[in-house]
Design a protein around this nucleic acid. Structure first.
Lengths: 220, 220
DNA sequence: GTCTATACTTGGATAGAC
DNA sequence: GTCTATCCAAGTATAGAC
C-alpha cells in the first residue's frame, strides 16, 4: 500500500510492518482456509485477505497449493512448539488430559485445526497433494505418541495399547472433534468430552494405573 | 445413451437401467466426491462420471450443491439402514465393538465416510451449506447414542459418560480415522485401533462392567 | 517487489433444439 | 428428458510497467 521509499532494500522485521509479504500471505492463507475452506482459498481470496495483489501469490510461492502448504507448515510448527513446552508440565494421565483440554480449547477457538482438516480433505482434489500433507501431519502423531508414552507408557494400559496406535486415535479424534465443532459452531460437546476424559483419567489413576513411578495426587 | 424408444414415458426401475438419471447422477456424485473431493466435484466432473450431460445436473437438481446434498442423503440413508440392522445383533460392549469394527472396515473400503468428511469440510466454502450438512449428520450421532445406550447404558461407565456425549466422540473418531486413512491410503492403523478397543471391551466386561442384565460371555 | 493487464482454463448456469 | 451451444463469473498463471 504505502510505498516504501527505501529503494530496493530488504526490510526484515519480526512482526507487523510491510516488507515481509511472504509471511503476510502465509497468515492470510491461514485465515482464508479457516473462513472459506480449501475450495474457497483461491489466490484472489487470499490476496484480498492479505490486502495485496493476487500476482504476489505466484511470485512468492509459485502456485496457490504451495502457499497453502506453507500455511500448513506455519501452523504445524507453531503448534508443535507450543505443545512441546506444555507437555513438560504433565507427568500423570490427569495432568495430560488437563493440558490436552487446555490446548484443544485454544486451538479450537483460534481455528488452527481447521487448517489441518481443510488441507487433509482438500488433498483429495489435487494430485500429489496427499503425501505432502501427510508428511506435515506426521509430527502431530509423533508428538501425541511421546505425550502418551511419557504419562502412561509404563502403566497397564500402556502395555495393552501401544502409544503409537493410541496417538493415531487421539489425532483422529482431535480432527473429528474439530470438524463437528466447526460444522455446528458449538464447541460445548467437544469440551464436555474432555471433562469426562479427565474424570476417567482420575478414575484410572485411583485404580492403580501407574503405581510404580508417579504417585497419583488426586487419589481418593 | 441408447434412446429409449418409448416416447415420453417414465421408466421406473430399481437398479441399473436408464431412465432413472437422477439416481445415476447421485451415484456419480458419490463416486466423484470419493475420488476428487469436494472441490473436485464439479458439475462437469460428476456428469462425466455419470456418462451423461452436464446440463442434466441443473435440470434435475437445480445446482451442484443440491446434487451433493442429495448424494449425502443417499449415503446417510443407506448406511443408517445397514447400521440399524447390525445393531440388533449386539447386546454386549464386546459385540458392539465387533459390529462397529466390521461396519467401519466395510465403510472404509467403500469410501462412504469420505463423502461425509468432504461435505463437512466443504461446508466452510459455501454459505448456508453448514446447517444442511449438520442436519444430515445428526442421525449418525443419534444412532451411535442409541447403540451405546443399548449395550452399556446401564453399566458404571454409562453413568459416568452420558451416551449422547460418548456418541459425539465416537462419530468424531469415525470421521477422523477416515481422514487419516484416506490421506495415507493405509487402513491398517485404524483397524488396529479396533482390535485394541475390542480388548478393552473384553477387559471392561470382565471387570464387572455390566453385571446386571447381560452375562459376559468372554469372561476369564 | 509490487502493481496492472491480460491470456487461458474451468465451472455454474441458462436457452433452445431435438 | 436429454443434448448442444453459449454466456458469464471466477480462477490460475504470466508478461511487463513501475
Amino acid at each position: 500500500m504505502a510505498k516504501a521509499g527505501v529503494s530496493s532494500q530488504l526490510v526484515r522485521e519480526g512482526a507487523g510492518r510491510s516488507g515481509a509479504t511472504k509471511q503476510i500471505l502465509v497468515e492470510a492463507a491461514i485465515e482464508t482456509l479457516k473462513a472459506k475452506g480449501f475450495s474457497g482459498a483461491s489466490a484472489r481470496a487470499i490476496a484480498d485477505q492479505a490486502g495485496c495483489n493476487q500476482a504476489l501469490v505466484f511470485y512468492h510461492f509459485g502456485s496457490v497449493v504451495n502457499l497453502l502448504l506453507a500455511a500448513l507448515d506455519d501452523v504445524s510448527n507453531s503448534r508443535f512448539e507450543r505443545y512441546s513446552t506444555a507437555l513438560d508440565q504433565a507427568s500423570t494421565p490427569t495432568e495430560l488430559v488437563d493440558v490436552a483440554a487446555d490446548i484443544f480449547r485454544k486451538d479450537l477457538d483460534a481455528g488452527y485445526v481447521t487448517v489441518l482438516v481443510e488441507m487433509i480433505a482438500g488433498a483429495s482434489s489435487i494430485p500429489g497433494l496427499g503425501p505432502e500433507v501427510s508428511t506435515r501431519i506426521a509430527p502431530w502423531t509423533q508428538f501425541a505418541s511421546r505425550a502418551i508414552s511419557a504419562t502412561l507408557g509404563d502403566s497397564g494400559l500402556g502395555s495393552m495399547v501401544p502409544a503409537s496406535q493410541a496417538a493415531y486415535g487421539i489425532v483422529a479424534l482431535y480432527l473429528g472433534l474439530e470438524m463437528l465443532t466447526h460444522l455446528d459452531g458449538d464447541r460445548a460437546p467437544a469440551l464436555a468430552l474432555f471433562d469426562h476424559a479427565r474424570q476417567l483419567a482420575v478414575l484410572f489413576q485411583n485404580l492403580g494405573g501407574s503405581p510404580g513411578t508417579t504417585k497419583p495426587k488426586e487419589a481418593r
